[in-house]
Amino acid sequence: MPRTVAGAVADAGIVVIAVPFGAVPDVAGALADLPEKTVVVDAGNYVPVLRDATIDELDNGGTESAWTAQRLGRPVIKAFNTITAAHLASLSRPAGAPDRLALPVAGDDPAATARVRALVDAAGFDPVDAGTLADSWRQQPGTPVYTADLDAAGVRAALETATPEHTAEWRARIAHTATGRTS
């Protein structure tokens, strides 16, 4: 039976938002009446030029998930953004499997992040605490953890070595690719 977005998420305990950044403000209205206990997961990534309109706040060093939380008018947990959809569907493994991959989870509410870590685990991946939402820049596109398919130790190491320049350099490369510039 067809339902609106608001109707589909009305009773959800966790809602995962995985839309292009330009659609985040459109989703905000559908989430306006969610109960406070509903955890909202930001699984999106800002991809300027190729997919998303330019957002100066992000291009000048802002954190994607903080921007999303502001647009939604509620806290978010950052997770599921560092793995491709194909790998999310095909690379899950049972807990304890030697080849089990890990995913970072960042957020400010300990209870909400615990719920999302449990969801990551149930999805077949080891959850790794990636700090607060302000720290979630460490898992943005271009950083060492982004689409790297790492185990838990690898995710921790990648988060530790991330720099803001990783994201800036990645954005510059995709802009050059999209515009055909080679310099």
Rank of each mutant, 00 (worst) to 15 (best):
A112G: 09
D11P: 01
H166E: 03
R3N: 08
E165T: 14
W170L: 13
D52A: 04
A79W: 02
T4K: 13
L50P: 01
D109Q: 03
E160P: 04
T84N: 01
H176E: 15
A86N: 11
L101P: 05
A6P: 01
S183E: 15
T177E: 14
A130D: 10
V5N: 11
A85F: 08
A114I: 02
A85R: 09
G142F: 00
L133V: 09
V19W: 00
A114N: 07
P144I: 12
V40K: 01
D42H: 06
Q70N: 06
D56R: 05
A172C: 04
L58E: 04
V47Y: 13
L119N: 07
N60E: 14
D26K: 14
V39F: 08
A95F: 05
V41I: 05
R71M: 13
V116T: 02
V49Q: 02
P110S: 00
A122H: 00
L34A: 10
P144N: 08
A8P: 05
P20T: 09
D108C: 08
L72K: 03
M1Q: 10
D99K: 12
V5M: 10
V19L: 13
A153K: 09
A168Q: 12
P2T: 11
F125N: 00
L88R: 08
T182L: 12
A86V: 15
V41Q: 05
A175T: 14
G107M: 07
D59A: 10
E160F: 00
T163E: 11
L50C: 08
G154H: 13
D26I: 01
R100F: 07
A148N: 05
P20M: 11
D151S: 14
A85L: 14
A123G: 01
T84Q: 08
D135S: 12
A122Y: 01
W170A: 14
P164F: 01
I17F: 04
D151Q: 11
A118H: 09
A10V: 11
P48C: 05
A122F: 01
A130N: 11
D126I: 01
I83R: 11
A53V: 03
A89R: 12
L91M: 15
R51A: 02
T68Q: 06
L119Y: 06
D26T: 12
L159F: 02
P20F: 09
E160D: 15
V116H: 03
V47H: 12
T147V: 13
L91Q: 14
I55S: 08
A178M: 12
A114D: 13
A122K: 09
T182V: 10
L103G: 06
P164I: 08
D129T: 02
I17Y: 04
W67R: 03
A134H: 09
H176F: 06
P48Y: 08
P20I: 11
T82K: 09
A114L: 01
A10I: 03
D108S: 09
I14W: 02
T147G: 04
A89E: 11
T163C: 07
H87F: 04
A123Y: 12
A53N: 10
A118Y: 05
G107I: 06
A114S: 11
W67I: 05
L50H: 06
R138M: 08
I55Y: 06
V120G: 03
T163I: 10
T167Y: 00
A130H: 08
A122V: 03
I14P: 03
I174H: 04
G131S: 07
R138I: 03
A158K: 09
A10Y: 00
R74M: 10
V41C: 01
L88E: 12
A111F: 10
